[in-house]
Design a protein around this nucleic acid. Structure first.
Ligand SMILES: [Mn+2]
Ligand SMILES: [Mn+2]
Ligand SMILES: [Mn+2]
Ligand SMILES: [Mn+2]
Lengths: 220, 220
DNA sequence: CATCCATTTTAAGTATCCTTAATTAGACTA
DNA sequence: TAGTCTAATTAAGGATACTTAAAATGGATG
């Protein structure tokens, strides 16, 4: 199945919303894709006709297996480009996303394979997001959890959700990276803010920010 | 001036035809771009209206200074991508062209700048074609000449015109590269075919192929 | 110089992806 | 349960980049 870059983006957006346990409603989709709600309805009807999504009027959209596969392959493109741009050109974690978004839809299977090979068939991109293989299969993964749901102790950053301009700026400014070690010192009762130590620097982050940082426990 | 990727391709095609001293006629353009002649007329009328080309009915198209600048910047994108794909991913000289063609139209100024910087601001791509700077200015160049118009002696390959599938296959199969040293041994009177020696291997190439290999003279 | 024919243009229409404005459906509230 | 309001849909249409088919042009040829 070969689809346009607009369709790839549409399906990828549903997939990303599903991952974050959010509904792929019209307004949600419209704001993610920066197009009008009417355009969402149009596209939904079209793609339902092609068996790529499940769609009923006034309900939110879900992916069919066929649609999900395309979404996974689109994510593969996105994440391989991100990884490639990061490693070769040293673009930072919010720059890679923007640039990958622009070119990913015009990448041939051949080129993607070369990029994959060059990178050594990575299983994760620089944000920690898993990279599906060329069949659209995700790598086996441990379950990571947000630092905001953890108790004091040592953790390693496994994934960073760069999902708004504010978060981009924050993670970029303070150079949060996958692999960083975090010491969770204490959790403020009043608002669940987190006191953390990283590279010998202590800072307080809100519960909300904490929920965008997935970690694994380090056993000392 | 910001134009679509279709317009960039259109202007770049005129530019490339002009370089090869060929007319940018409707049929010529149509075959290069693989679209119908009617689509050429449409686009020509539109772009003439924007002051990017000179166009009169039934005459061939030429670039205005404004159009030429866009064409040069499009060539810059193309050649920087080619160079980047060649150096990082080791794609060969005909692969880079195809892949660059697909993604070049969706590349941001920012990314292009990073690629340029990464490559060390190259002045030529792997085919030997000159890379305009970010203002659209071509580097100073010596005049190179086709080996087919040379007399016996030693030469260095400066540019290879990969302009048809046959030439792609030939140059790729025999691994012709910019920088290679060619010894022109003799020219056959009967058909101007060229007897050349390269890497200790002797071969005969037709005058036509010779005209696609630009060289400079080596003084021993 | 008249005719022929390839090239180009015109005319009409298609596909894709988008818009705005008006309408409707459905979920929540009083 | 009727009323309200938000979200979604319908309707109409626009931009871009194409297509095919028919008509026109103009340069080459006999
Ligand atoms: Mn991303
Ligand atoms: Mn990512
Ligand atoms: Mn090229
Ligand atoms: Mn080139």
């Amino acid at each position: 199945m070969d689809v346009s870059s607009a369709v790839e983006k549409f399906l990828k957006t549903i997939y990303n919303l599903e991952l974050r346990h959010q509904k792929a409603s019209g307004s949600n989709m419209a704001s993610k894709l920066n197009i009008s709600p009417a355009a969402i309805t149009d596209m939904a009807i079209k793609l339902a006709g092609q068996g790529l999504i499940n769609y009923q009027k006034h309900k939110s959209i879900t992916l069919t297996p066929k649609g999900k596969k395309i979404a996974l392959l689109a994510s593969r493109k996105h994440r391989l480009w991100e990884t490639f741009l990061h490693r070769t050109l040293n673009l930072n974690l919010d720059e890679i996303h923007v640039e990958a978004e622009l070119i990913e839809g015009y990448t041939s299977e051949f080129l993607l394979g070369k990029i994959d090979e060059y990178l050594g068939f990575p299983e994760h991109d620089p944000h920690g997001d898993p990279i599906p293989d060329k069949k659209g299969v995700l790598p086996e993964e441990q379950a990571f959890f947000p630092i905001s749901e953890s108790s004091p102790g040592s953790y390693q950053i496994e994934r960073l959700y760069f999902e708004s301009d504010e978060l981009n700026d924050f993670f970029t400014e303070y150079e949060f990276k996958v692999g960083d070690i975090l010491e969770l010192v204490l959790i403020f009762k009043m608002d669940n803010a987190l006191l953390i130590k990283r590279n010998k620097v202590t800072m307080v982050i809100s519960e909300n920010i904490g929920s965008k940082i997935l970690v694994s426990k380090l056993n000392e």
